[in-house]
């Protein structure tokens, strides 16, 4: 993707603000990356290089941390991030069927988690700690309890309708 110089400058300004807020000490790297991900919705590569330079640590360190933790994503995510909980309780209550349904409906797979229109990303998370509500899914931080394959399809359709009417 071609970017104008002005666009990229604006991008780095936001990263700068975040680094200033926490301070450039290496101990704050995780907090900084969390805020950057919140702002950009993922960790863009050029921003990671920028963070390394600004904090005076090696890019390898920054990428090391960024790739170690599950929450960080180096790929852009869809507008709706659907997290399917596969904790023990959800697993024994057949969360796999929910995941299969979502992937089938959206033509996604483990290797391809985001739809081409960038609307949906489907992820598996280990446990959201809502085991009493199993099986549970989270769509953009809202927890849905006791979902079924049918309900999952309803939720997708509702989002699609919302988006279409926009």
């Amino acid at each position: 993707m071609h970017q104008t110089a002005q666009q990229s400058l604006r991008q780095f300004a936001k990263a700068n603000e975040i680094i200033d807020k926490h301070g450039p000490e290496p101990a704050h790297l995780i907090n900084i990356l969390q805020d950057i991900q919140e702002e950009y919705r993922y960790l863009p590569e050029e921003i990671l290089f920028y963070v390394a330079t600004a904090m005076d640590i090696s890019p390898a360190k920054v990428f090391g941390v960024a790739t170690f933790y599950e929450d960080f994503s180096l790929d852009p995510k869809g507008k709706y991030v659907i997290k399917v909980c596969d904790g023990t309780a959800c697993h024994v209550k057949k969360s796999t069927e929910i995941l299969d349904t979502l992937r089938r409906e959206l033509a996604l797979s483990e290797e391809k988690p985001t739809t081409n229109d960038m609307l949906f990303t489907v992820e598996v998370v280990s446990c959201i700690g809502a085991c009493g509500l199993a099986p549970a899914i989270v769509i953009n931080d809202k927890v849905y309890a006791r979902v079924t394959p049918g309900l999952t399809v309803d939720l997708l359709n509702r989002i699609r309708e919302d988006e279409a009417s926009r």
């Binding site: 596969d86 904790g87 023990t88 309780a89 697993h91 280990s126 446990c127 700690g129 085991c131 009493g132």
Partner: peptide, 11 residues
Amino acid sequence: DEGDPGAFMDR
């Protein structure tokens, strides 16, 4: 950091 799948007491 209650990471065990199936645990939510600490939460």
